[in-house]
Write a protein that binds this DNA or RNA. Structure first.
Lengths: 213, 213
DNA sequence: AATAAATTTGCCCAGATGGTCAAAAATTAT
DNA sequence: ATAATTTTTGACCATCTGGGCAAATTTATT
């Protein structure tokens, strides 16, 4: 395989390779330098859409405008399950139901999940305002509800914000990291995934949130 | 704000806008069409590194070679905490320790976490082989260990694979989605994040994994 | 100091990319 | 049928991008 006699790296080689690695890492997460939604070209979109490029630009002012639109429409649907957590239901069942709905959304619409993940991952250039406005308000509201349930002894005490983050993280993981999940589970276990994950999450919620007494 | 009288969309407008959105979504997650590591140019890397572009290509054969190198070095460090789960320790403590180490890694090295997330998110073009080889073997081994602990009654029964996925998802969430987390938590609560998250995860592990009897 | 080797740079290029524009084609209204 | 409007397209452009290359510069060797 390795045919080169592998000349040992000189001092300068080592230093600069390290420097480059560091710079690549830095540049990679510096939003002021990096784009974000690059990688998908207008030509590709046009090809898939079966339209010509100028035709696409006839409908959208720019490429970014397409993604803005996409993300806007996305967020609404994405937050529906959280919105539907009701103060009137049985607390544990409400949360288990939320998790189930969120998981189903992730498994059924992995593309949307990935788009959103990429947007956030790259610093949310198009949705930052919505996150700290609309989304924050919604989460604050639901966190307060969970807090109330805890105070009334209907749920075991837990930080509601981190609970919500965990639910987001765990459910979206199956969409965003599906390549990894599939690689590790193998073909058969992947087929049983939706059911097994559901059971896992039900168990997790029950053990985590059932009041001890 | 909105000055345009907003001419109502025609049928064709609505149809094609939807068509374009659909195509953008499709193209976005089609690995055969999309690149992946685009967005960070050699020029930007060069700028940050303080080197000229040809100079960078003197050290790395291509842009992709930089990322391959980066990802290779990354994976080793990233899997260390998992590797260190020991069959000789107290089961719950071993897992809590693992989670703590993983969380610290995420919080201290968010750039690495994000790079890896992007790679997986875009279909793991450079690491697919490692995932289904080295990584799968490692996870299989640790899953078997957890299974053994469960059989001996030292941990509450749970699917070990989904347990590991959840730990990955939850801990990396704080790095990969930091923008969202910060937007929702606000400044003060963000400052307390590392501690609060630690407490949250300890509680979660304890409730989830302590055998019922 | 002279020479050999390693490193850095300026200059160039071909292809891709986002976007423009005026003209052509299709649709709708009269 | 014809005029007005909307939609579609071919051709074009400036810029950016990854990368090549030979000359110039720096560093190590003798």
């Amino acid at each position: 395989m390795d045919e080169t006699p592998k000349p040992p790296l000189t001092r300068i080689q080592r230093e600069n390779r390290a420097r480059i690695r560091e710079a690549a890492l830095e540049a990679f997460t510096r939003h002021d330098l990096c784009g974000g939604l690059r990688g998908v070209t207008l030509d590709k979109i046009a090809l898939v859409a079966g339209l010509t490029k100028p035709n696409i630009l006839y409908y959208y002012a720019s490429k970014d405008a397409i993604y803005s639109d996409l993300l806007e429409n996305l967020l609404e649907e994405w937050l529906l399950p959280l919105k539907e957590i009701s103060p009137d239901g049985e607390p544990l069942a409400e949360i288990q139901n939320y998790v189930r709905r969120k998981l189903r959304l992730s498994i059924e619409k992995p593309r949307e999940s990935k788009l959103f993940a990429t947007e956030i991952l790259h610093g949310a250039p198009l949705t930052a305002a919505t996150l700290s406005g609309y989304l924050k308000d919604l989460v604050d509201e639901k966190a307060a509800l969970i807090e109330r349930w805890i105070k009334q002894g209907q749920l075991a005490p837990i930080d509601p914000y981190h609970l919500i983050f965990s639910i987001w993280a765990m459910t979206q993981h199956y969409a965003d990291f599906d390549v990894q999940v599939r690689a590790i589970l193998g073909a058969e276990k992947t087929k049983r995934l939706p059911d097994e994950a559901s059971v896992f999450f039900d168990t997790l919620c029950a053990r985590l949130l059932t009041p001890s007494k």
